[in-house]
Write a protein that binds this DNA or RNA. Structure first.
Lengths: 110, 110
DNA sequence: AAATATACCTATAAATAATAGGTATGTCAA
DNA sequence: TTGACATACCTATTATTTATAGGTATATTT
């Protein structure tokens, strides 16, 4: 996809926010969810998603449990207490950054 | 700075936009400008800026001219015709991306 | 004389995502 | 029944991008 490099730096925060909203999700579901919410414009690849989830897990932000559904294994991820706190911080940081970027991108009226 | 990795992918577009607005700028000026516009929150390092400018130049998006001012050399960068076209495309791409991100980050009302 | 600001640059390291590959089950159509 | 496609997990390698840290040099302020 064009402009895919724009995702850099924002993916982990998006993942935390999705889990905060939805309680628990599994990898495949996350990919579909982001695709849908962005009207097919943001395509998170598996090679980006799974390492990102595993890193968040290793940092103690996520807890996991595996369940077999229709013969296939699903690994559910959800926020730990630590992850909930991190989500608040990272969300605020990202929103401030987006505001700053918007300020720079705003058409100049001078 | 915290959250500095958020800049990833957006820097070259920001540079193009700044040059589109200001006609021509030199490296040091760009760093100060971004710092000021973001209220000190976005700090573009030299190690990020100069390679980024040189890449844009090598892609044919920027033209340069050096001038000596107060004993110091300034290298001015400005958009080429090709750079002007690229700016329009990249700006639109970034704005669509920011909208998508905002949509995902918006508080869930469901 | 020393510190700070201005002004350019690059080499190496770190972080992050893409590409491309692997494994496996379920379903639907030819 | 076979082949395509969707679901579901994963990792190794590569590419891209920025940070860190270093270098050079002049002007101004303390």
């Amino acid at each position: 996809m064009a402009g895919s490099q724009l995702l850099k730096g924002t993916l982990s925060t998006i993942l935390l926010k999705l889990l905060a909203d939805n309680g628990r999700m599994y990898g495949y579901e996350i990919i579909q969810n982001i695709k849908k919410y962005s009207s097919d414009q943001i395509n998170v690849t598996e090679g980006a998603l799974y390492p990102a989830l595993h890193k968040l897990e290793s940092q103690g932000y996520l807890l996991t449990e595996s369940h077999k559904v229709d013969g296939r294994t699903r690994k559910y991820y959800r926020l730990s207490k630590k992850g909930e706190r991190a989500t608040v911080d990272k969300l605020q940081e990202l929103q401030e950054f987006l505001q700053n970027i918007s300020g720079i991108l705003a058409p100049k009226t001078t």
